[in-house]
């Protein structure tokens, strides 16, 4: 197991510095952590989005492993092709370099995963490719200018569902993508955050070890889209878990395990108040949205507890 800090930090950094992510971006942190665990026998695919754009501006690349980007909605399908090519070339004895195993990791933001790329992802997972799909969920289409997505929570201000005199931001509930992936009956599905580095590394390790597809949904606090001080992104990831907004859990072959159960949930309003995207909710008259969100988090948490109990 590589999940001790000393060993992790001694691994080669495969996403190197000099990329063009925003100051305070937690996305590059996520990718770096994944790659520290995955190692160099890895091929990475990226959907169009922040992390693809900032890591590969021609003639530069931040990737020390092979990397492919083709389009926005097709990352899972593209990597499924790479993975199949590996199996076929291996079977025919024609690999460019001999390897028993290569890790295949596809990643996309919530736009490329929850929305435009959902079909491609669903297809690749159902087909059973030996690949890990990572969604870095920053709750909106950040790369194109903070438009709402199906991962945007109720009440968040975005450029396409802005708060205003007649609006409290997004009115629809976010989609529970992680459970949609569980419904694909794949061997491993989990949620984590970049704050929980040990949890993240352990989950990447498990995901890459299973025979078949795996999915990780990783919360990515976005300084630009959530409007917070670039220094506190990682803290917001921790607090998202403590208030119940982003439970840490994993589903191994259908069995739910909650990895962290806070003794007492912090009020979600405390977490929201640190983010400009929810600023309008703290004005008089919008208390009902905060109340709704608190209840929603509580219900979702209880649902998760029941799932854990019922699949134990």
């Amino acid at each position: 197991m590589a999940t001790n800090l000393k060993q992790l930090t001694s691994n080669e950094d495969l996403l190197c510095g000099g990329h063009r992510a925003c100051a305070g971006c937690t996305g590059s942190n996520i990718l770096r952590q994944i790659m520290l665990t995955a190692g160099s026998d890895t091929v990475v695919g990226g959907a169009t989005g922040c992390m693809e754009v900032v890591t590969t501006i021609f003639p530069y690349t931040a990737w020390k492993t092979s990397f492919i980007h083709s389009a926005f909605e097709n990352c899972a399908a593209t990597v499924s092709g790479v993975e199949t090519a590996f199996r076929s070339l291996k079977k025919h004895g024609e690999l460019p370099v001999e390897r028993e195993k290569i890790n295949f990791i596809a990643f996309g933001g919530d736009g490329g995963t929850y929305d435009i790329g959902l079909q491609s992802l669903s297809g690749a997972m159902e087909r059973g490719h030996n690949m890990l799909y990572v969604c870095y969920d920053n709750n909106a289409y950040m790369n194109t200018g903070i438009q709402r997505s199906s991962a945007t929570p109720v009440g968040a201000h975005t450029s396409t569902a802005p708060a205003g005199s007649h609006s409290t931001g997004k009115t629809q509930l976010r989609k529970d993508l992680t459970k949609i992936l569980v419904a694909h009956n794949i061997p491993y599905v989990a949620q984590t955050t970049p704050y929980h580095w040990k949890d993240l590394a352990a989950k990447v390790e498990k995901a890459l070890a299973v025979d078949g597809p795996a999915f990780l949904n990783i919360l990515m606090p976005c300084t630009v889209g959530w409007h917070f001080d670039p220094a506190i992104g990682i803290d917001l990831a921790r607090e998202a878990v403590e208030c119940g907004y982003w439970p840490l859990f994993e589903v191994e072959n259908g069995k739910y395990i909650i990895n962290k159960k806070p003794k007492e949930m912090t009020p979600i309003a405390d977490w929201m108040q640190k983010q400009g995207r929810f600023k309008h909710l703290f004005k008089p008259g919008n208390e009902h949205v905060l109340e709704f969100t608190q209840n929603w988090v509580k219900e979702e948490w209880e649902k998760l507890l029941r799932l854990e109990a019922s699949t134990a």
């Binding site: 492919i68 499924s80 092709g81 590996f86 491609s120």
Partner: peptide, 18 residues
């Protein structure tokens, strides 16, 4: 695959893989 879009996408991945 589940669509032609994914067919061409997988073909791109496979060909790029070698």
């Amino acid at each position: 695959v589940e669509s032609e879009h994914s067919a061409m996408s997988a073909a791109v991945g496979s060909a790029a893989a070698g």
